[in-house]
Simulated scan of single mutants.
Amino acid sequence: MSAAILAHPRFISLEGGEGAGKSTAIASLRDTLQRRGHEVVLTRDPGGTPLAEKIRALILDNRQTLRGEGAEDEPLSAEAELLLVFAARAQHVREVVRPALQRGAFVVSDRFTDSSYAYQGDGRGLDPAWIAELERRAVGLRPGLTLLLDLDVREGRARTSGRDLGPDRIESEQDEFFERVRAGFRRRAAAEPERFRVIDAARPPGEVGAAVAAALEAWLDAACREPAR
């Protein structure tokens, strides 16, 4: 794959920490686009294809270790976690994202490469230059619009604690980890204001959904006003 990164105008990602309310926001994005007559493909990262979903399950395995017959418990290293995420992402882009964009659909993804910079870079302490190289070589694609649902870590953790299912491997991290993740997201948003829209996710779900829809509408209207190149 080429090392160039394409920011595609019909590719939209939603980012945020734990408990930020991405499900409600994604529904708002879908409804807004469909009202405008667009085909919408909803997907998630890592995941989105049968193979990528298997990799996702491996990454989020709450047992904390990978066990093999006759082998000692083997923790998943930060480096292996990053490479697994990019393996799933490369498959996802090839099989789902690019084909949908090529036929003219909008793709809305629950997370994308910004999460690797925040979680494996800021959270785990891995070199962002390595992440950038993987992004160029294995993915080559970036959203044209990224909506960041920003929420206080403790409030987000309080929201997720009420879920029926137990925490996965990432959700089981400590607050300090998620503070680094949040700071990483906010730095990326500040560095790329043309791509990011930051949404206050502390508000009630209906208000967050409305803010997401308004941000998308404004972005679409501005894109329509841009002169042809």
Rank of each mutant, 00 (worst) to 15 (best):
89 R>Q: 09
89 R>T: 12
89 R>E: 05
90 A>E: 08
90 A>R: 13
93 V>Y: 01
93 V>F: 07
94 R>S: 12
95 E>L: 02
95 E>Y: 02
96 V>G: 04
98 R>E: 14
98 R>A: 14
98 R>H: 09
98 R>L: 15
100 A>N: 00
100 A>D: 03
100 A>P: 01
101 L>E: 03
101 L>R: 12
102 Q>I: 00
104 G>K: 13
105 A>S: 14
106 F>W: 11
107 V>K: 01
107 V>N: 06
108 V>Q: 05
108 V>R: 00
109 S>E: 02
109 S>P: 02
109 S>Y: 08
113 T>P: 01
113 T>C: 08
114 D>T: 05
115 S>M: 07
115 S>Q: 09
116 S>I: 13
116 S>C: 12
116 S>G: 03
117 Y>N: 09
117 Y>A: 05
118 A>H: 08
118 A>Y: 10
118 A>M: 05
119 Y>G: 01
121 G>A: 09
121 G>N: 04
122 D>H: 15
122 D>E: 15
123 G>V: 08
123 G>L: 14
124 R>I: 00
124 R>V: 00
125 G>T: 06
125 G>P: 10
128 P>S: 11
128 P>N: 12
129 A>I: 06
130 W>G: 07
131 I>H: 13
131 I>Q: 14
131 I>N: 13
133 E>S: 11
134 L>K: 12
135 E>C: 09
136 R>C: 00
137 R>I: 12
138 A>M: 10
139 V>N: 07
139 V>Y: 01
139 V>K: 10
140 G>N: 08
140 G>C: 10
140 G>D: 11
142 R>F: 04
143 P>I: 09
147 L>P: 08
151 L>I: 10
152 D>S: 04
152 D>R: 02
155 E>K: 06
156 G>W: 04
156 G>V: 06
156 G>D: 03
158 A>Q: 12
158 A>D: 11
159 R>P: 00
159 R>V: 00
159 R>K: 03
159 R>F: 08
159 R>Y: 06
160 T>M: 13
160 T>A: 14
161 S>Q: 09
161 S>P: 05
162 G>Q: 03
163 R>V: 01
163 R>L: 07
164 D>L: 05
164 D>F: 00
164 D>E: 00
165 L>M: 06
166 G>N: 00
166 G>R: 04
167 P>G: 04
168 D>R: 08
169 R>C: 01
169 R>N: 03
170 I>R: 08
170 I>P: 00
170 I>M: 15
171 E>T: 11
173 E>R: 15
174 Q>C: 08
175 D>S: 14
178 F>A: 04
179 E>W: 00
180 R>D: 11
181 V>E: 00
182 R>N: 07
183 A>E: 15
183 A>N: 09
183 A>R: 13
184 G>M: 02
185 F>N: 04
185 F>W: 07
185 F>S: 08
185 F>L: 07
185 F>I: 02
186 R>V: 14
186 R>P: 11
187 R>Q: 14
187 R>H: 11
188 R>L: 15
188 R>M: 15
189 A>C: 09
189 A>W: 01
189 A>H: 06
